[in-house]
Amino acid sequence: MPAKKTDVNELLKALKKLYPEHIIPLHHQNAWQLLCAVILSAQCTDERVNQITPALFQAFPTPQAMARADIKEVEKLIHSAGFYHSKALSLIESSKRICDVYGGEVPQNMKDLLTLRGVARKTANVMLGDYFKKPEGIVVDTHIKRLSFRLGLTRQTDPVKVEQDLMKVIPYKYWAWFGIALILHGRQVCNARKPECSRCTLAGFCPRKGVKISA
């Protein structure tokens, strides 16, 4: 069951002290660039994506240019991101749809975002919450799923069900920031196999501290 509201409020205060800023770690200058970066970030580090995107956006600076791209060229530029064929296809096909259906602009609602190749709820939530500032849900990646379980905010393992639990207990105004904060804490302190509970300032809120989790 989700934690009590008072527990969540105290948790949010502690988390806000640790991560007061809402900073998207993926470098971008517009919505389309962020969308491309998030697509590339699947099973790839943000650092690697940030190394790849400057050359990618220099070669293909707009969705119109990406829509006309040769897939082999895109694959060469993004090869080190892994799953490069699928990701290249997603970049090209989503850009085509953005141009053909949405007038060259990234759509600003969940329903339309999910029609783009390579975009599932996680990516759509990043765009809506972190860029457009009108979230329709909460990002759930492996870090958020793991920390939400350890912190007693959910007993679920399916990302959609985890998101549903979080949306019930996290106030709407914190939805976008909360995801970024948990991701940062998962990377820096609360890793999967060896969480550093002894130096974790959230340990007092964590009924499952020290639990090893495979993902």
Rank of each mutant, 00 (worst) to 15 (best):
G104Q: 07
V74H: 01
L114H: 02
C200R: 08
R121P: 15
A81R: 06
I183G: 03
Q156L: 12
L26Q: 05
D130H: 06
M110V: 04
V140F: 14
I92M: 10
Q108F: 10
V140G: 12
F178S: 11
L89G: 10
T142C: 10
F149Y: 14
F60S: 08
E73A: 14
K212A: 06
T123G: 07
A176T: 01
A120I: 03
L77M: 10
A3G: 15
V119G: 08
V74L: 05
P61V: 00
T201E: 12
D100M: 11
K13E: 15
R48A: 01
W177A: 10
E10V: 07
L128V: 00
D100A: 15
I52G: 10
E136Q: 14
L12N: 02
G82Y: 04
K96I: 01
E75Y: 14
N9L: 09
M167D: 02
R193E: 07
F83T: 06
I78E: 07
A203W: 08
P54N: 13
V160K: 14
H22Y: 00
L153Q: 09
E196H: 13
R199L: 04
I71N: 05
G137R: 01
D165W: 11
R208S: 04
C200F: 14
I213H: 03
L151D: 03
G118R: 05
N191M: 07
L151R: 01
R68T: 00
F60W: 13
T157Q: 08
L116T: 01
A181G: 03
D46W: 09
G137S: 07
R150V: 06
G104E: 10
W32D: 10
S86L: 09
Q188I: 06
Q108K: 15
T142I: 02
A81V: 10
Q156E: 14
W175K: 01
R48Q: 12
G204S: 06
Y172D: 04
L166N: 01
K168N: 08
A203R: 15
V169R: 11
T142N: 10
Q43C: 09
E21G: 04
I52T: 13
T157N: 02
I144Y: 06
V8F: 05
C197A: 05
S41M: 06
L147H: 00
L91E: 10
R146N: 13
V101P: 11
F60M: 08
C36N: 01
H185Q: 15
S148A: 15
L147D: 12
H22R: 15
L113H: 02
H27T: 14
K133W: 05
T53Q: 13
Q33A: 07
I170K: 02
H85C: 05
N50H: 12
N9V: 00
E136L: 11
E10N: 11
S214K: 14
P107S: 06
Y84A: 13
R208V: 00
A59D: 03
C197T: 07
Q51E: 15
P159K: 06
R121K: 11
A55Y: 03
A31K: 09
K145L: 14
V74W: 00
Y131I: 03
K194Y: 04
T157C: 04
E93P: 00
A181V: 08
V211G: 00
M167H: 11
L56G: 03
E21F: 02
T201V: 11
L26A: 08
D130Q: 13
N125M: 04
R121N: 09
L15I: 06
R97W: 12
V169C: 15
G118M: 12
G204Q: 04
A3T: 11
S80Q: 13
K13W: 08
L34A: 06
